[in-house]
């Protein structure tokens, strides 16, 4: 599921009121697309007249907020074991910093591990897409050259 910040922005009050942390409504929409903020974090949106917009925004961000166990699929038959996912995954690099410099991962506390020639997801619950982070992170999918990783 990809959230389009512009689509979210069009449903906001567009007042740039600065009542939230973001400096502009566009910045707020971008944060919402990444899962960093919720529609309720926009005070003017809770005011009378914006009920329909608030409902639409809640519907749009709901799939991301409800993601618990699914969202990433790794097709091992397509995987070449290149390790791109390990090197770009922020969680893996935080757990095992040498992987960020290209070293092969050995830790079993990471999201991905390249084992027996293919990448495997071993700790899906650590992915930043899921609670508590709920970020719309897709770097593994973005840099998987063989399209073995799919996020929906």
């Amino acid at each position: 599921m990809k959230l389009n910040p512009m689509e979210l922005y069009n449903l906001l009050p567009k007042t740039n009121c600065r009542l939230c942390e973001a400096k502009t409504c566009m910045a707020f929409a971008t944060k919402m697309a990444l899962g960093d903020v919720l529609p309720e974090d926009c005070p003017p949106l809770l005011e009378k007249g914006f009920e329909k917009n608030l409902e639409k925004l809640r519907d749009l961000v709901a799939p991301m907020q409800s993601a618990e166990e699914t969202g990433i699929k790794l097709d091992e038959s397509k995987c070449t074991g290149c390790g791109n996912c390990v090197v770009v995954c922020p969680v893996d690099v935080a757990v095992e910093p040498p992987t960020g410099r290209g070293k092969a991962g050995r830790s079993r506390d990471t999201v991905f591990i390249v084992e027996n020639g293919v990448s495997k997801i071993i700790n899906l619950e650590k992915c930043r897409r899921f609670p508590p982070d709920r970020l719309n992170c897709r770097v593994c999918e973005q840099y998987c050259c063989t399209d073995a990783i799919e996020i929906w």
Binding site: T80, A104, R106, V114, E115, V118
Partner: peptide
Amino acid sequence: SLGLCRLGH
């Protein structure tokens, strides 16, 4: 194996 790509494994 850990770290070996498909070719290497």
